[in-house]
Design a binder for these strands. Sequence first.
DNA 1: TATTCCATGTAAGACGTTACATGATTGA
DNA 2: TCAATCATGTAACGTCTTACATGGAATA
Lengths: 181, 181
Amino acid sequence: MALEHAILAVLTRFPHSGYELAKKFSSVGFFWMATHQQIYRELSKLESQGWVNFETVAQVDRPNKKLYHVTELGKQELAKWIAEPSEPTAIREDLLVKVLSGYLASPTVLAQELERRRQIHQEKLQFYRGLVEENYAIADFQTLSPEAKCRYLTLRRGVRYEADWVEWCDEALQILRADLG
Amino acid sequence: MALEHAILAVLTRFPHSGYELAKKFSSVGFFWMATHQQIYRELSKLESQGWVNFETVAQVDRPNKKLYHVTELGKQELAKWIAEPSEPTAIREDLLVKVLSGYLASPTVLAQELERRRQIHQEKLQFYRGLVEENYAIADFQTLSPEAKCRYLTLRRGVRYEADWVEWCDEALQILRADLG
DNA sequence: TATTCCATGTAAGACGTTACATGATTGA
DNA sequence: TCAATCATGTAACGTCTTACATGGAATA
């Protein structure tokens, strides 16, 4: 399971509350999706394993929060896990099932769905590209610290992923367009 | 849930036994992963909903099998489901969590993992490209039937997906290489 | 006045993974 | 003789999703 390790990875950079983690893990800007319920449950487990601990931070005009930190044990666990080989994530994509059997529905319906998906991916792509420009507008990536290189590479994966979807949607629409009459 | 619809989609083309479906849904050549236990469970559900039915086929020298067919009701359900909008699949990729916190491990370990992944994706890519050459070695895709177009497009998605991973692995290895000493 | 944001949780159910279970046949 | 293939399932457990629940502060 990588959710627990994804949380450790985020907490290694900065301490976060459950609420803050939940926002990160549900935003387009992140490559691991999880709901707040998953986060809170994992945090309890991580704490009972001694991989994280928390301090309660009192706040004025808003609820107090629990700020979680990674422990040394947590960092060791994360490093250990990184060294283990892992398989590619199984692909489970609704849209591909729909395209495979798309000839059963009207061509218009399928084309609309592809247009819609194209737009979603286009928006994510622009968001990611904005992050690249803001944070990595440099000529030589070798000047980055190892940590910054690692973060850049995950962002780069996001850019490629979304761009690839947009291009495929365009291909698909072009091939299906002739059937729209 | 798309597993039930993925099964309907496959059965719409040809009748399959649970065993045959399980092979398809666990192979590299398919874009929806499921174990045989999931398949058998879903088939029972689909049958009690009246979306599929089966005939028992007696075989010599090997166990009998249940050959499942889609019913009219099942086809209608599939067409209905295609028309509903669906969101992109949430990304949950171990490797990206590892890369994000990769600076905590030795650079060699991370590079090895990336090499390993590159090879996995390269193999899948070659497999998909082989399928394209075998089945769609044509100049004009407009000559394909709507059904064949749809099948080609899912395969095309696979080609793009694997190629994109390979290229990203190369980028990542190039950027991380300097830290390997 | 209604909605969103902050902040944390419980509970139920759907879905996915891993292990267990059987048994004949075919090929190395 | 050992492993793999064909063929179908049960059981237990782990993970994910969806709904329910609370309550003050800020904003529209």
